[in-house]
């Protein structure tokens, strides 16, 4: 009895530390094996960067956490993916509910062809929230959070498509934040942006990790070293090395990692 309790405590401590975990995860697209068995623990309230050459499976792996691969034809998963200890691929999991907890920001800014306000309020509206004042507060808070409020507060009814690329991407982050997720997945969020917008987003990521667990896929190694606490290097569907960012970039254990970060391939 006592022992069981103790185990529970250990378990919940682990959970607090490890927000996301995978155990023996393998992914296939039809016959192609994209992920070849990965065990990984991702810490809460930290930024974890996934790096690796194109086609190494880092995006696929990222999209496991909000089940965005479900729509890909021929997708098949083996192993366990857990958030706060819950296997998110269990049959009874409500995928829509899961995605409210796990926000996502994509490679290209993809605001809806709606007004700025409607974009940020979207996630709340589809949950059936209609109270105007509540929505307004939420929209304001989310836009302030991404430092976009001052730029758009007079144009909330303008189309989001009129914003610049960097503003659109911050809007998309605000849209994700509005539903108060605990995890934010970012799939190369700055690859379509200019350097100035990129640095704004990076600052934002740094800000957000206080409240969110952030996982970011990036092609840009400087970016990984700037924004992340932990870095994972993927190659050909395998997790080659996963360590504190500083350690991985200054003193990698594996030869492959070293070759990649020093630009010898990839």
């Amino acid at each position: 009895m006592v022992k069981e309790k103790k185990e529970n405590i250990i378990d919940s401590n682990l959970q607090r530390k490890h927000k996301l975990r995978t155990k023996g995860v393998k992914v296939w697209y039809d016959d192609f094996m994209a992920i070849k068995g990965i065990d990984m623990n991702i810490k809460a309230n930290k930024v974890t960067a996934f790096i690796g050459p194109s086609g190494c499976g880092k995006s696929t792996f990222l999209r496991l956490f909000n089940r965005m691969n479900d729509y890909v034809d021929g997708f098949r998963l083996e192993g366990e993916v857990t958030i706060d200890g819950e296997n998110i691929y269990k049959k009874k999991v409500n995928v829509e509910q899961l995605r409210k907890q796990v926000g996502m920001v994509f490679q290209k800014p993809n605001p809806f062809p709606k007004s700025i306000f409607e974009n940020v309020a979207y996630g709340l509206k589809i949950q059936g929230l209609k109270d105007k004042k509540f929505l307004q507060e939420k929209v304001e808070r989310s836009l302030k959070r991404v430092a976009l409020w001052d730029e758009v507060k007079d144009d909330l009814n303008k189309s989001a498509l009129a914003l610049s690329g960097g503003q659109q991407q911050r809007l998309c982050i605000a849209r994700a934040l509005a539903v108060e997720p605990s995890i934010i997945l970012m799939d190369e969020p700055t690859s379509a942006l200019d350097p100035l917008s990129t640095s704004k987003i990076e600052e934002l990521i740094y800000e957000l990790k206080k409240d969110y667990t952030i996982v970011i896929v990036t092609h840009n190694m400087q970016q990984a070293s700037r924004v992340s606490d932990y870095t994972a290097f993927f190659y050909l569907g395998e997790l080659i090395e996963y360590d504190k960012t500083k350690k991985l970039f200054t003193n990698p254990e594996k030869k492959q990692t070293e070759n990649y970060i020093t630009g010898r391939f990839g």
Binding site: N66, M68, Y71, E96, Q97, L98, R99, K100, G103, M104, F106, K108, N110, P111, F112, P113, Y122, G123, K125, I126, Q127, C172, R175, A176, V179
Partner: peptide, 21 residues
């Protein structure tokens, strides 16, 4: 664009919400 579909599913839309909203 598929990116909009991803955005809306990523926000937790159901298929019906995605289609009509």
């Amino acid at each position: 664009p598929d990116s909009l579909r991803e955005a809306s599913f990523g926000m937790g839309s159901t298929k019906l919400q995605n289609a009509f909203r």
